[in-house]
Each structure stands twice: as structure tokens, then as C-alpha cells.
Amino acid sequence: MKWFILFLGVLYVILLYAAYQLIYRPLKVNSRIKAAFARGDSYEDIYHMPYLLNEEEQNMLRRFYALLDKSELITVSKKRSEYLALQNQINPHFLYNTLEGIRAEALIAGVDSIAEMTEALATYFRYTISQVNNLVTLEEELANVENYYYIQQFRFGSKLDLRIRYDCEDEEEALICQLPKLTLQPIVENSIYHGLERKIGTGHLDIKITMTDSHLIIMISDDGVGIEKGQVKVMNEQLRALRLEEENSGETGKKGGIAVKNVNNRIKLLFGEEYGIYIYSQPDSGTDVEITLPVVKN
């Protein structure tokens, strides 16, 4: 009788363990993946659920994956960024010709500062409005940032200081790395208008380039007014997930610029959810915006 009771006990434990492994655990894992998908935290894992309980689920996911065209999502996000940056766009050729006319008149009048600012503005718009390819080189993006900074200096003067530095062995290798067009300038614009404009005294912008074998990390830092801890947490939670429907929200979007969320979404759409933007900040201690990208040279 004792051996029989012991046998039943062992059998019960085995059946309990089997039920856990074959029924409860698969349901729990699938439920966690589905919940993450519903929150927008991840959309890739839903296609690779380790436990598909029946053939209908497999067919459903295969059909859903076929319907989701990532290249179409990239195009939609890219077109939205162009629209936000150029909400009141006039004919670009007319814009270039008008700016060139202003520059010529300024040179004739001997007002070199107006001529230089007009030329910088024409260069900036030419880069922004021209055909937006998926990727440009880091060198091109940095040149656009420097031109944008030059324009801002006409307003801020010596109150604004920009420094670009490299924390990698080969600066030339870093400069040929590719990234989505209009990735850096929107972050710099945010740093100026939300961080440095309200700061008393000179505001410093620092762009640090770091490259490893597989990652290109760009840190854009300012010593401005900073952001409250709770707001930083909310911003990072929003940036962590790919949410195309929210990229118009926020002050930057309302002003017609390219929102940080839009930059983040384009990075994730092109390269995957492990890449993107993360923000570090404290009140009165400035803000660091970290952009993580893969090393892409072709």
C-alpha cells in the first residue's frame, strides 16, 4: 500500500509537471508576447512565438506577416517627416531663386552678413527639400547640422557653442557610415529651443561620435535647463515602442518640425527595434540624447 501511494504521488507530480510544461507555460509565454504586441513594445516577436497551439494560429500569423509590408511603412513615415518639415512649402525652385536674389542684392549693398545668412539658408533648404533617400552619410548629416548651427548663430551669436568630437579610432570610417536623412538636425533643434534658449549665459552643444564593430552611437548633449524626471520616463517609454500614429504629437510636431518620435520611428523601421533614441536628463543639468544605429557602409 505504501509503495502504491508513493507511486500515485510520483505520478501526480509527473502529470502536474507535464501539464505545466505542455499547457500552462506555452499559454503564459504566448500571452506575454501578445500583450507586448498589443502595447506596441514589439511587433517582431509575434511572428516567432515558440508555442503555436494549433494550425489555425500558424496560418493566421503567416497571413498577417504577408499583409504587413515594412517598406510601405517606411515610405509612409518618410513622407510624413517631409510634410512636417515643409508644412508650408512653396515651390523649391522659386525659393532658391528668391534667396539667391536676396543674396545678390545684399552683396551689391555691401551687407555681407545678410548675404552669408541667405546662402546658408538656401543650402539648408536645398538639403531638406531635395529627394529624401533612405540613407545618407554621417558626413552629410554633420554638414547639415553645422550649416543649421551657422544660421542659428545669427540669432544667438556667442550665446551658442557647438562642438563635434570623435571617440573612435578611424574618424574617416565613421564619416562614411550611413543613417536616415534628417536624423541629427531635429535633435539639435530640440536641444536649442527646449534646452538652451531658456538658459542664462552661453549654451553648449556637444555631438560625440562613437563607433564599434557593429554600432554607431551618436550622443547629442546640451547643458540647458534639462527635463523633469517623470517627463523623461514618459518620453523614453514612448520612444521604446514603434508607434507611427503618435509621431505627430508633442510641441515639435505642432510647430511644423520633425518630431523626435518621427526620427526614432524611421530608425526602428529601417534597422529594427533594438535601435533608436534614448534620452537622459535632469532639471538644471542638461540633456543627453543617445542615437544608436547599426554600422552601415553600403
Results as ranks from 00 to 15, higher is better:
Glu173His: 09
Ile187Leu: 11
Gln152Ile: 07
Glu173Cys: 07
Glu139Tyr: 04
Gly201Gln: 10
Leu196Glu: 03
Arg165Asp: 13
Glu245His: 12
Cys177Gln: 06
Gly224Met: 06
Cys177Gly: 05
Asn236Lys: 15
Gln178Gly: 06
Gln153Cys: 13
Ser249Glu: 11
Lys208Thr: 14
Gln153Ala: 04
His204Phe: 15
Ser249Gln: 10
Thr183Met: 01
Phe154Ser: 15
Glu171Trp: 01
Val234Asn: 08
Val188Leu: 11
Arg240Glu: 15
Glu169Gln: 03
His204Asn: 14
Asp206Val: 03
Glu246Ile: 08
Asn144Ser: 04
Arg165Gly: 03
Glu251Trp: 01
Glu172Pro: 03
Asp222Arg: 06
Arg198Ala: 15
Leu160Cys: 13
Val225Asp: 12
Asn134Ala: 11
Leu162His: 14
Cys168Thr: 14
Glu237Asn: 11
Gln152Ala: 09
Gly250His: 03
Tyr149Pro: 04
Ala241Arg: 12
Ile200Thr: 07
Ile207Gly: 03
Asp161Val: 15
Gly253Tyr: 01
Phe154Asp: 14
Asp206Glu: 10
His204Arg: 12
Ile192Thr: 06
Thr252Asp: 07
Gln238Pro: 07
Glu173Met: 11
Pro186Met: 05
Leu160Thr: 11
Asn147Arg: 10
Leu160Phe: 11
Leu162Ser: 05
Cys168His: 00
Asn134Ser: 10
Leu179Gln: 09
Asn133Asp: 09
Val132Trp: 10
Val188His: 01
Ile207Glu: 06
Lys229Cys: 08
Ala241Met: 15
Gly203Glu: 06
Met219His: 06
Ala143Phe: 04
Val232Asn: 05
Ser249Pro: 02
Met211Trp: 07
Lys229Thr: 10
Pro186Ser: 07
